[in-house]
Simulated scan of single mutants.
Amino acid sequence: MNQNVIITCALTGAGDTVGRSPHVPVTPEQIAASAVEAAGAGAAVVHIHVRDPETGAPSREPRLYREVVERIRETGTDVVINLTAGMGGDLVIDPEAPLRHLPGTDLVGGIERLPHVEDLLPDICTLDCGSLNFGDGSNLYVSTPDMLRTGARRIQELGVRPELEIFDTGQLWFAKQLLAEGLLDDPTVFQLCMGVPWGAPADPGVLMSMVNMLPEGARWASFALGRMQMPWVAQSILLGGHVRVGLEDNLYLAKGVKATNGQLVERAVRITESLGSRVATPDEAREQLGLRPRA
């Protein structure tokens, strides 16, 4: 069981959630304000995507990331910054003509997914460790071994800590291969992503199996989607891990009650403390994850 728990809040994500809740932040100002709210509620880490301020669609525009990060820092809020580097992996194919790409495709190479990381040098950036049938239909997330080696090498050169996003056991196997090839530095940081169709199901036995596969000394957290988000806080802590909550993964505080990021973090804090654990501060998170001290 983990006695000193890092809470990450995933603020907005890239999913089609903007029209489903008024609390999903869209503009850089809203995303930064939500980060400050989450930090005030007890999150040591905020995981950041950006969206087109006009449409709410997911974006990988570096200037939007810069504005979010600058707004957070201007407030003086002490929080660990975790920027997604998973955007640019979407491939939507025509099932009748698979070589034809459909609208929604945004597919670039490993280096092209990192300009905002190169610009801002965040504490953490994500590395999505494999390809996946992403939900029903013909939407694929593409992250090949060659792309991953290229991305991991560049992230390592930048001195940024990669958070290894793991959606299934084969991806965990490959992440360990990156470590064996010297493309990851200790301590490795894993995020076990559960309940995302069609990756690893939100099943406690599957989570335990994945935890047992982790390399020695790895730091890890896990999350599950929707109504399983809060039960997964307890699952992760009991198995020795950290936790992630937030509107990227779940829109509700209770049935029919739309949540804010701050409310989801508050609920995670209560679960953590009710299990007899304590919530880690940002400085404690930096020490545990092997990050640079706060500037």
Rank of each mutant, 00 (worst) to 15 (best):
A44N: 03
E29G: 14
V24F: 08
A35T: 08
L64W: 08
S59N: 10
H47W: 06
E29V: 10
P53C: 04
E54M: 14
V50K: 11
A57S: 15
P58Q: 12
H49S: 08
Q30W: 04
V45F: 09
V69A: 02
V24E: 03
A43Q: 00
G42M: 00
G42D: 01
S21E: 10
R63V: 13
V68M: 05
G56R: 03
I48R: 06
E29K: 14
P58N: 10
V46M: 04
P28M: 02
S34W: 10
P28H: 03
V69N: 04
E29I: 09
P28L: 06
V50Y: 13
E29R: 14
E54I: 09
E67M: 04
R66C: 12
H23W: 09
A38P: 08
E61K: 11
A39N: 07
I31E: 00
T27W: 03
S59A: 15
P22C: 12
L64E: 03
V36C: 08
R60L: 14
P53K: 01
R60G: 15
E61N: 14
A44G: 13
A43F: 01
V69W: 01
R66T: 13
E37N: 08
A35F: 02
A39P: 09
G56L: 01
R60W: 13
V69L: 02
A39L: 06
V24N: 09
R66K: 13
Q30T: 04
V26H: 09
R51Y: 07
V26A: 05
L64M: 05
V26Q: 07
R51L: 08
P53G: 03
I48V: 14
P62Q: 13
Q30K: 15
R66L: 11
P22E: 05
E67P: 05
P58Y: 13
A32G: 09
T55K: 11
H23F: 15
Y65E: 06
E37K: 05
A39W: 03
E29D: 14
G40E: 12
A43N: 02
P53M: 01
A33T: 07
H47M: 06
V69Q: 02
V68C: 08
E37I: 03
E61A: 12
G42K: 04
E61R: 12
R20P: 03
G42I: 02
V36H: 02
R51H: 12
P58I: 11
S34P: 09
S34A: 15
T55M: 10
R63K: 14
V26Y: 05
V26D: 01
V36D: 06
A43M: 00
A41W: 00
R63C: 12
P25K: 03
I31D: 00
E54A: 15
V24A: 02
H49D: 13
R51A: 09
T27E: 01
V50T: 14
G40W: 02
R20D: 06
R63N: 12
P62G: 08
A43V: 01
R63L: 14
P28I: 01
A39C: 12
E67R: 10
T55C: 10
V45Q: 02
P62L: 11
V46W: 09
S59H: 11
